[in-house]
Design a protein around this nucleic acid. Structure first.
Lengths: 231, 231
DNA sequence: GAAACCAAATCGTCATACTTTTGAGGTGTG
DNA sequence: CACACCTCAAAAGTATGACGATTTGGTTTC
């Protein structure tokens, strides 16, 4: 789900540079400079800037230029912003924020899923829990990561809340990130795996409290590990 | 924080019509039609469409046109999208989603705030709690609403988590919405007011659990009331 | 020193021309 | 009939020149 065309490529350059703080808050860019620097036309620059404006990362003002807005105004829930920040110097802060968010949302989502999940959801969840166990035992980190992402995304989706469901990709990005940057044990912990199965079982049998509790234990563990790794 | 200029006005027309489902998922618009319909130039239409594309509400493809994407792909955390949905036919669903989200986030934020709030935060929180009590007793709904919004926003901000902080505006929109649409009692309930003071006191004295619990009671009450009103 | 004024800088909008992609329909061949 | 291929046109994508609007900062004037 990328922005297409030249504006997209411009965004892929500008976004990360701004997100990483390389172009600091308050800096002012000129449209014409961007045209030259990237060898594209006004049209392209303007459209890219409009998108950044849509995520409130910049504001364009006459006679002034394109100002980089303070981070506190950015749409920190925008998937692109999250990706950019995860990829750059802001990664630790972003991971911490997302950790707290998961802490709040995922247990609640698990509880809701125990009530609202469809039969298909429950079936899929069970089988995912099994596959997760297998790929964890066989120590295939990439496959495991895929299953882990799918598992958490499914719980969020099965909660029946569209906003929770949308955090699936975000959580996926976190899990990918912490694997890529080696912020997790080289082998998934058996205890964590067991908890995933517990979540699945609780949701399948409609036990909201159990599901919530088990999920809370999972994300608490992840958050603690993260804090330990980041100091 | 609005998008400026003609593209902004175009968005204010297009966004709500799409958000309300008046232009349904899968519908195809032509750039040229939009130019004529709104009497603006290509440039303006393209920039507006780019922004909608940025929130994943539409996708523009050559030789096809501008297609409205399924709701499940929209950036449901984008403040504009939330506003548009709250204003239109999607209001009940949007309120419900936001209710669950508050349920998950606000208690967690209160707990974090008890640990991370600055001294200024704590002072401001105390005085807000007092003002809230006063304006509730004097039954000035508008003033009360303002204080209520400020209170919840402050707790979210004081949590020290940028993502929570950003939900302040969203929660504000919910509170405004339910007042505007008369989805709440004509007089704030004394019990709810007392809970707000409890939250403030707990945060000020660093009692995370109490703060979390009291906040949970507040949002639970709000959610139940909402469900009752919406059937 | 303050108020009014002017000029330059920069974005905002429009009109237009050209390019690129791609879907649809037609054509031919096996 | 089925399939591959070709051609064409529709639509968005990009580039560019011209002009308008607005804001800032300095300059003049009193």
């Amino acid at each position: 789900m990328e922005i297409q065309g030249l504006p997209g490529r411009l965004l892929d350059e500008l976004g990360p540079t701004i997100a990483s703080g390389e172009i600091p808050e308050g800096a002012v860019l000129r449209g014409e400079d961007l045209e030259e620097r990237f060898g594209v036309s006004r049209t392209v620059v303007r459209e890219a800037v409009r998108i950044l404006e849509g995520m409130r990362m910049v504001a364009s003002r006459r006679r002034v230029g394109i100002t980089v807005l303070p981070k506190s105004l950015w749409d920190v829930f925008d998937p692109m912003v999250i990706r950019w920040r995860l990829a750059g110097a802001d990664r630790p802060a972003q991971l911490r924020s997302l950790g707290s968010l998961r802490m709040a949302v995922e247990p609640a989502a698990a509880a809701l899923a125990a009530v609202h999940a469809t039969n298909d959801d429950r079936r899929e969840l069970s089988s995912l829990a099994v596959e997760l166990t297998v790929s964890a035992r066989e120590a295939d980190l990439t496959t495991f990561l895929g299953h882990d992402i799918a598992f958490h995304a499914l719980v969020l989706r099965a909660s029946g809340n569209e906003m929770f469901a949308h955090l699936g990709d975000t959580v996926g990005a976190v899990l990918t990130g912490r694997t890529e940057y080696h912020l997790m044990p080289h082998q998934p912990e058996p205890y964590a795996i067991r908890l995933h199965r517990e979540v699945a079982d609780a949701i399948c049998s409609g036990h909201a409290d159990e599901a919530e509790q088990a999920m809370r234990t999972i994300v608490t563990g992840a958050l603690e590990e993260l804090n330990q790794q980041l100091g």
